[in-house]
Write a protein that binds this DNA or RNA. Sequence first.
DNA 1: AGCACAGTTCGGCCTGCGCCGAACCATTCA
DNA 2: TGAATGGTTCGGCGCAGGCCGAACTGTGCT
Lengths: 224, 224
Amino acid sequence: MKDGPDIARIANLIGDPGRANMLAALMSGKALTAGELASEAGVRGQTASGHLTKLEEGGLIARERQGRHHYFRLADSDVAGVLEALMGLAAAKGQLRTRTGPRDPELRHARVCYNHLAGELGVTLYDGLRARGVLVGSGDDVTLSDPGREEMARLGIELSTKSRSPECKSCLDWSARRMHLAGRLGRAILDHAFSEGWAMRPEGTRIVRFTGLGEGAFRKTFQV
Amino acid sequence: MKDGPDIARIANLIGDPGRANMLAALMSGKALTAGELASEAGVRGQTASGHLTKLEEGGLIARERQGRHHYFRLADSDVAGVLEALMGLAAAKGQLRTRTGPRDPELRHARVCYNHLAGELGVTLYDGLRARGVLVGSGDDVTLSDPGREEMARLGIELSTKSRSPECKSCLDWSARRMHLAGRLGRAILDHAFSEGWAMRPEGTRIVRFTGLGEGAFRKTFQV
DNA sequence: AGCACAGTTCGGCCTGCGCCGAACCATTCA
DNA sequence: TGAATGGTTCGGCGCAGGCCGAACTGTGCT
């Protein structure tokens, strides 16, 4: 009884709708200003400011001052992981918010999830890589096979070795309820797509917009 | 932009101290009655009842009526996973509650974490199995090696095949900030310790109490 | 220097919700 | 059938905290 970490404090921080919206917006991995986050949350600046200091004190987000702007981002990938887990759970419990705006089709097709590719294209990639034996493992526990590792190296996908995050990780997509690829490999593949000019990120959104040629090249490269 | 699952609703449920205590108590995997949960949370019966219906409606716990008792348990392992993730994050942020009661030494030594062994002994087991090559893999991404699988079979550890949960999984211990073994294998090993009579669970706690002989046998069997 | 704009701080309003006392069901046992 | 016990429902209290208007700080632009 009442041992263990103070889980309630953190959950309470996430549990306010305004703050949850801010955190969800920050899941894109992009740093946003206080004003942008205020409009995300649908509140005035003062209120947002209060929320942001609370989140900062709670260690969930980090602040970076740049001139008269304050940029905020998620504190670390642990926080992003918890948020993804919560999203997965909320989706599983059928509490989708289904605010289907006009932009939704693009979001569903390909979007960024923290630092890797999610959406239909992310799921397709994941399924394809498993079908071809690049990824092996059962359930949500996958690793890169030796031939797979060679293939990635041949394609010029560089896995950063600095981060201690796992090489491969399955990540449950809340819109499709399907797995897609996270971890260092997932990040490297998305970076590759950007640096090859196959896709770009419209400002302030989580959309990943592939060009026609780019999506073709992507599918051909990863044979999906 | 308010897309995505309603993460705030769920986080809000976990975010109340009383409810969080109840959920933490249920992490033992044991089903508890409303009264027990009320005392865990430090509130009266009526208040607890209100919390429990909210948690049930939110899909976080499941209720089972038996005579005049109502037994509650966590709804599924997804919920347990989210709670573990939150505990890990809270521990990482240094928000330990450090309510070090007299029972604490025992809790730290060996306790149950959802359905597997945690605490110092759990960490020792995990490290030992990795050092001996029973578990292989990098970081928190481990699998059972072929010789390891043989050894487990020889010891009479039966992995249930019904559950689709991963065979091996690392689980971050919030007290020691070290990894220990979860997944089907972790569960099977703990079950084995109980069925061999090495250890028992005092009612209503998360403690795993090994007998002197039992702990010796445990350490000898797994060579740690 | 003066203005515009981003963000924060302050003070006050008001709703939400956690809490409990008391009364009300349901089950078991004598 | 009545008493004891475990849970739930109801009603009312009181506080925490989210929200905003207004005033203040700090930065950049002219």
